[in-house]
């Protein structure tokens, strides 16, 4: 509970700064309008106007909150105007991509720690894969997959997996390499099999690494799914909301989609955090 005060303080500072910048950035338009109409505006009139513009440069926090509320609670979730509808489309691609990426990441890590050739041969490619900007790669993946008849969920999930396998594989390689010589020798004195070494030592010891990797991975998955929605022409999903918003200058919509995806990411990371806490508590690894 000690953390409540600092957390509220930081949140308050952010909100105040946000309002401040809303006023500064949106006042240009207010002044423009006023000078065109040939009227003088007072500071309080400017202040009032910057909070309620239709297409503000930077929407005020309450505008975003209202838009978020309107598009989640007050719309049918099947409606194309519902953020829940778009959020689910992005979330489904995120989750599928996350599962594929995590699976691939763990498999690669297992291969790398067990096989020198893979360590030298595959690891550099894994790192190289992440140096290519995903924004450049995403349209190509979409186009290539479309040409073999795949569209919709799967291509987005693949882009999402492309981003999320990396933290998982790198993290799990580090995790699997955690056992110290004595812990290995101990199993050797029991004449343990390789599979027993894996399940009884490498897997449990790498658990803290797994959860840290999963948290980074799930956030990366969401980014991947959103990026994957951009080149498809803004059909559906949070990425589509962002793109449509920018086509039509709907800044409030852009910001609410942004905040919406941030909330989604925070929820996903938080869920993994809960599972992590539960698991590590049971393993006696959390103190």
């Amino acid at each position: 509970m000690k953390s409540i005060l600092p957390i509220t303080t930081v949140s308050m500072v952010i909100v105040i700064l946000w309002y401040g910048f809303s006023v500064i950035l949106n006042s240009t338009w207010t002044k423009d309008q006023a000078s065109r109409a040939g009227v003088e505006v007072t500071f309080s009139e400017i202040l009032k106007d910057t909070m309620v513009q239709q297409r503000p440069l930077l929407p005020a926090p309450h505008q975003v909150v209202i838009e978020l509320w309107e598009t989640t609670a007050n719309k049918k979730i099947t409606s194309k105007r519902s953020l829940v509808y778009h959020g689910w489309i992005t979330l489904s691609a995120t989750l599928l991509g996350f599962v594929i990426g995590t699976g691939l990441g763990i498999l690669l890590a297992i291969g790398i720690v067990h096989n020198k050739a893979m360590d030298y041969g595959v690891m550099p490619w894994i790192i190289a894969s992440q140096t290519v900007p995903i924004l450049a790669l995403a349209p190509m993946i979409i186009v290539v997959l479309y040409s073999i008849g795949l569209s919709g969920l799967v291509p987005k999930a693949i882009i999402s997996a492309y981003l999320s396998f990396f933290p998982v594989s790198v993290g799990m390689v580090a995790g699997f390499r955690c056992p110290d010589p004595t812990q290995m020798d101990l199993l050797k004195t029991y004449a343990a099999k390789k599979s027993q070494l894996f399940w009884k030592l490498m897997v449990p010891i790498s658990m803290p690494y797994l959860f840290t990797s999963l948290k980074i991975g799930v956030a990366a998955s969401l980014v991947g799914a959103i990026v994957g929605e951009l080149p498809t022409g803004a059909v559906a999903g949070l990425g589509a909301r962002l793109l449509a918003g920018s086509y039509y200058g709907q800044t409030v919509q852009i910001w609410s989609a942004l905040i919406g995806s941030a909330i989604l990411a925070a929820t996903l990371v938080g869920l993994i955090g809960l599972i992590q806490k539960f698991t590590l508590d049971r393993m006696g690894l959390a103190r």
Partner: peptide
């Protein structure tokens, strides 16, 4: 499995 080995450090697995 002819012997039991006791190491310098107890080297118990902390998750067990």
């Amino acid at each position: 499995r002819a012997y039991g080995y006791v190491f310098q450090a107890a080297s118990l697995y902390p998750w067990r």
